[in-house]
Design a protein around this nucleic acid. Sequence first.
DNA 1: TTGAGGCTAGCACGAGTGTACTAGGATGGC
DNA 2: GCCATCCTAGTACACTCGTGCTAGCCTCAA
Lengths: 198, 198
Amino acid sequence: MGYTPREERKARLAEAVWEIVLEQGISAVSVRTVAARAGVAVGSLRHLFPTQSELLEFSAELMVERATERVSALVPGADPVEYVLAVISELLPLTPETRREFELNMALIAETPGNPGLARARDDAHARLLDLFIRLAGFLRGEEPSGEGPRHDGRRLLALCDGLGLHLLHQPADADTGWAVVLIREELDRIRGAERVR
Amino acid sequence: MGYTPREERKARLAEAVWEIVLEQGISAVSVRTVAARAGVAVGSLRHLFPTQSELLEFSAELMVERATERVSALVPGADPVEYVLAVISELLPLTPETRREFELNMALIAETPGNPGLARARDDAHARLLDLFIRLAGFLRGEEPSGEGPRHDGRRLLALCDGLGLHLLHQPADADTGWAVVLIREELDRIRGAERVR
DNA sequence: TTGAGGCTAGCACGAGTGTACTAGGATGGC
DNA sequence: GCCATCCTAGTACACTCGTGCTAGCCTCAA
């Protein structure tokens, strides 16, 4: 909705970056491979992204933006646990699409030492994610997210999810993922039933 | 103890790989940068590692080996929780050394699409880690590791640790890490106190 | 002392890299 | 119509890449 042609072209390049990272590793990303993958000339790519760093950073930010949009599209229903589970399901590598996203995230994290801009994007994404999970924990507990309880539970929930995400990456893309969802649901029930005093 | 000169030289090259990955990202790893870092000629490096893949795989395997040695050196004491916590502390990025190791692990995972040998090393390391955590959970529960309880708890414990590791990476190397240890300890107490029937 | 083999150093090659630059095509406002 | 602007396509440069190769060093057994 309302994207300029320029933004759409940039998004297409960013998607080419994603594909190459996932298929050949981050070391295979170059202006030429990306341009060829997107079907444009190197000069065109460089018109949109003067340097390689900008291309990588844009790719990372677009990924975060897409994920944020998906999560924002969800609305709480009658059951709080189901809502939170739906949110988390959008962020875990359960489907081929989210799996791509998670793998990409790992790869970009790995490249941060050589690219300060990527480190910034990574830290920003993590801060937003932590904030989201603390709010989710507060929602489950029926408390304000500013309290110590939601903060504690949100942190642990996020750690559990990130760790499970890593594990899911270690199994084939078409393998069963139900066990991970079971673990998450248990954790959500636990947060919901936690005593209000710590 | 008992390392051949050849193995020591290979280890030195592998350490140069680590340093470059951590300082400049995995994309900066090349036979030339690694050789220069280790203070040897490219030809010497290639005598030890005919291909670049072998160099990367050896670096990954050496990292796993070093970690395994550290963990194996620990012996259970009077308090099971303290022992398990000590083991986990060796694997989480709590100190500069283990932080390096964790970061390196992430970077190598990110490069697996372009290097099947790395993928094998990664899957092997993960399998051994999962096995270790299931045994730790069994140890805490006082059960055989083959049961469903230790399997379930071990999986969750490993996920929590991996996720916490990721989070620790997102904060400065010299920031406080106590909160992560607190979360782990709570989880260990919880496993130890879990009912034996599920 | 001699000689063999592990090892080092360095060059050469073709391919791939990021970036700079220019010439021309498309497009949209006037 | 015109023309400015955005954009594309392609070339060129200096550099790095992985790898193959050779000539010589060092070390140690015979």
